[in-house]
Design a protein around this nucleic acid. Structure first.
Lengths: 193, 193, 193, 193
DNA sequence: CATGAATGAGCCTTCATTCAT
DNA sequence: AATGAATGAAGGCTCATTCAT
């Protein structure tokens, strides 16, 4: 009874994610989203200021979910590399189950480049200190070569971006096994030394 | 007189690349492109079937340029790793000088995902044999670990995609030094062993 | 308890008159009226069939008020010209105190021209006999020239309409002094003769 | 050939006047106007910024026509009263032949009251000096009583407004005979004295 | 009985494409 | 051959009205 309102909002976000992923932001019609969500068009405008606001809300909701997953996993116990691995796998699982989110992000990154750029920089700078500590810990455990953290971070991020990008384009791939493979290689490579 | 047409066509493609890069495919107006190219709107439709055809022509023209650069450099003399490096740097230079092309590709990849997907698969499969030979040569020189070529190719492509993606988002970066840095790391890493 | 409904209805009519006067019929939103009346939107639809019905109710209510004022004053004692003057002044006072009504009437006359037209004709024909008697009385007192009543009535009505129209457009004017002035001129003009 | 563009613009203005007069500004659809003008909807937006701009253009075009008629007639030869009469009759003829213009003006006066108010004041103040001279001339000829010009002007304008207003509401009336009648009364009234 | 959240019909405006000059 | 004026299909958003609570 009293959980009908949040219910509606969630249904709209879900429908929007699917439709945006399938048809793209510009092509998609608000009416389509409304129909799939089982609500009227105007109801969408009660919850979101505009079509654009709806898209950004979809992205934000998913980014928060991912951030939550990351925080929960990174602060756990165990070696840094293990924690990084479990975190990465958890995120991979989330994305595998919500492939549409990545589709939306990739499809609409161009249209909303300024926003994306800001998010990109925010993430990088906000986690600089945390990443430094993490990298230092991994270096001291010998699982990372003695290379400036800045370079390592860039390398890692670019590999991540590229991996996710490829995965969104290959419908048969699952991201978890891609990540698993990367960590296997990493661990094997460092073990040799 | 008879080289006026090719001239016009090039001017239109150039203008289209800039406008698409700055404003995005859906947002950009054909009129803007026509004005910047110094031609009438109808002239564009004499050379291209539609706005979409115009975008794909822009992308194709640049992809061919890059393919030409790659072919010229890869078949040269020297160690495979050196050839790969010089090829990568040459492409990086081209992209640095034509950053707009990447902007277009990234911005519009979503809108034209089916096309991109096809190109993606085409590139991968068409170069499979060539890549295999290349990787085998590098393994025999000890600059690549003994890992299945398929995996290596994926790894390399994902890293490339991610690097290019990041570069398009950071206006201050130049791609050449990014590539240089990657090869420095690679060479340093393999030299240690 | 049972006077709460009439209370509500009046509050709605009052709010509607203000909002229609300020924003115009098409521009005004039912929600605004509901808010100003301190009721819910649906309550308005309990009392009035539609937004249009609400407007016409506003107009009718005021027309009845004016008709009542006129009847009370016209049938009094004194010379016909005096009675006409006092009636006119009383109506002017009412309009001065309810300027919004005239605003509504002028603003929306066009939108509801058929209705207004009907009202116009009704008033003219319904009061024909009464007006005739009145005019004859005034003629016999020498305060009106010997001109067909029909023409006199038209002249008077047009002057009235124009005066009211101008007054609604000039916020600083008060209608009473306009009317006062007109009767001064009239009386002075007839006194000379 | 080269008069096709002005032709189009005129046709649109003409169609707009008719449609606005028949259906009112808010109710009227741009599509209807386009169809009646025999052009596409977008063509209207080539010539006018918006639907509102279109309405104001209709009004302005007619006001200019009327102003031209007035200027041409007022500066002619003959007694002032005669010139005023011929001017008024000329304008009446114009309005009789373009009754729709008045319909539009009356219908939309409310919606665009600020604009109308400005026009109203402009007309009054711009012609103050001219009107003063005219009234003085008529007073010296004994066709106007010795009353302040300001009051006379108001009286005349209100009578005019009311007369036009009534005429727009009565489809059978023609304005010329109304004006003729008024001047007959006026001349007869002053002749007696 | 009063409410306000939900609805969907309706409309202005834009822009890719065409065609007469 | 080149042009740009003309076109009309398409879509985001508003608001009068309804109905479940």
């Amino acid at each position: 009874m009293n959980d009908q309102k949040p219910e509606r909002r969630k249904r709209i976000l879900l429908a929007a994610r699917e439709v945006f992923a399938n048809e793209g932001f510009r092509t998609a019609e608000v009416k389509t989203i409304a129909t799939r969500a089982g609500v009227g068009k105007a109801t969408i405008y009660k919850h979101f200021d505009s079509k654009e606001d709806l898209l950004l809300s979809v992205v934000k909701a998913d980014l928060q979910a991912i951030r939550d997953i990351a925080l929960t996993n990174l602060v756990g116990a165990g070696h840094p590399l293990e924690r990084l691995k479990s975190t990465s796998l958890a995120i991979a699982d989330y994305l595998d189950q919500n492939r549409n989110f990545s589709m939306v992000l990739i499809r609409e990154a161009g249209e909303f480049m300024p926003e994306i750029q800001r998010l990109h920089e925010d993430v990088v700078s906000a986690n600089q200190a945390f990443a430094d500590a993490f990298f230092d810990a991994m270096k001291s455990e010998g699982v990372l070569p003695d290379i400036p953290n800045q370079i390592l971070l860039n390398l890692l991020m670019n590999l991540t971006i590229g991996t996710v990008y490829s995965w969104t384009l290959n419908k048969e791939q699952d991201l978890r096994s891609q990540v698993q493979q990367l960590f296997d290689l990493w661990i094997k490579g460092t073990a040799k030394t």
